[in-house]
Design a protein around this nucleic acid. Sequence first.
DNA 1: CAGAAATCGTTTATTGATTCACAATAGCGG
DNA 2: CCGCTATTGTGAATCAATAAACGATTTCTG
Lengths: 231, 231
Amino acid sequence: MTAMASEKTVERLSLYRRLLLRLRDDGADVVFSHQLCVPVGVTPAQVRRDIMQLGCSGVPHAGYKIKDLLAAIAEMLDAPQSQRAVLVGVGHLGLALLTHFSGRWRWLHVHAAFDVNPSKHGAIVRGCNCYGLDQLPRIVREWRVEVGVITVPMDAAQTVATMLCDAGVTGLLNFAPLRLQTPEHVYVENVDLTTSFEKVAYFARHPARLANNKNAERDAASEKDRADVPG
Amino acid sequence: MTAMASEKTVERLSLYRRLLLRLRDDGADVVFSHQLCVPVGVTPAQVRRDIMQLGCSGVPHAGYKIKDLLAAIAEMLDAPQSQRAVLVGVGHLGLALLTHFSGRWRWLHVHAAFDVNPSKHGAIVRGCNCYGLDQLPRIVREWRVEVGVITVPMDAAQTVATMLCDAGVTGLLNFAPLRLQTPEHVYVENVDLTTSFEKVAYFARHPARLANNKNAERDAASEKDRADVPG
DNA sequence: CAGAAATCGTTTATTGATTCACAATAGCGG
DNA sequence: CCGCTATTGTGAATCAATAAACGATTTCTG
């Protein structure tokens, strides 16, 4: 229905949602753009723009209905039926992710895990079967798995990625410190913990900030988008 | 020495480094921009630009000396003496990160961990002492800790962030799904695993790609930056 | 009921990052 | 020794994302 959303937009929608869920649980029914902008780190204008793209409308003095927003976000982000993912590389990080993600979504399920280490084959890790890599193509194909999570060491990452793509996944969540070479139609999201850590260390040492996202704070404080320069 | 690098630049430098280390271990001495661009997902021009910012120079037909590049990157990214970090929230994710990060860098050390759960106090987790949150301000101040890693649930994240900032950290690595409110001089790097997962799920369902980074692949294939249009 | 105040929807600018394009340079083969 | 080719360094153009600005609209208050 709604048009294709950009990468950044999807990120923000995901944040809006968790925020809205919390507001709803606190008993709120409606919300204003300036309430959402601060915890997401953007301006009220950006929030309104995103909501517009969702197809929702608010009323000038009464804000947006939280229920409507949540429904629209769910329609945009969640798979209509059910979507399956597999995880490759059951190390410390892989295990933590399995725990973190298992049972968290109704519409997205981590269906199987894979590892080279034979001692892990056949085990059930966090309620998720663990297989050898040789089983990967078969299982991914049979279950129409769309998403692959890669938590193997750097040297193995490209090989695993190629296997997953060949088997038909169309999205990869890559934790290896490397930009994977994949077919055009496969989306890759890179999460590089080492880079993130090194980034923080670097900027922590250089308090001469480079505009961090502090503007949102200021923007939210002033009403009317700080367009108030009637002077 | 060298000027302040942008966020994106630091990310790429971190990637270049791990790539260069691998090349060096494979016995290479020199490298060309088009070798680095593919695994990092940018154009050769971007690589040259980054290297220029490092203060390194190459020679037109002979490339860059790997040793020089590694030295320059280390000088830019690594702390001259030693830098300390603490981790707050010893859950599954926190544990995995401790394991992942412990002993990985000489210049950046995870000094202590904190958790609300009293059963964890006094324990040594992955060679790292675990304390109650009440100890946090004292320890951070005494050891001049500059970096805080936040792996607590969303509801506790802002409180923890404020504690850390008040105690003097200047960099935060935030795994909670929320943009933290912090003083101007504190840098925050957000890693939101849920958002990342939802992003991949969304784009995996929409193979109508939005320019992923596939251009680098193409660029590297053609020599002379595809500026070859002598026609 | 009318005027004021707040909030939305949207258009226009701005910004910053990235790619393009090409002149300058150094090695290489004949 | 000389032209040829590959590669670097960088100014200009492009592009996407964001913020600013402002008219339109609706509730609130006296």
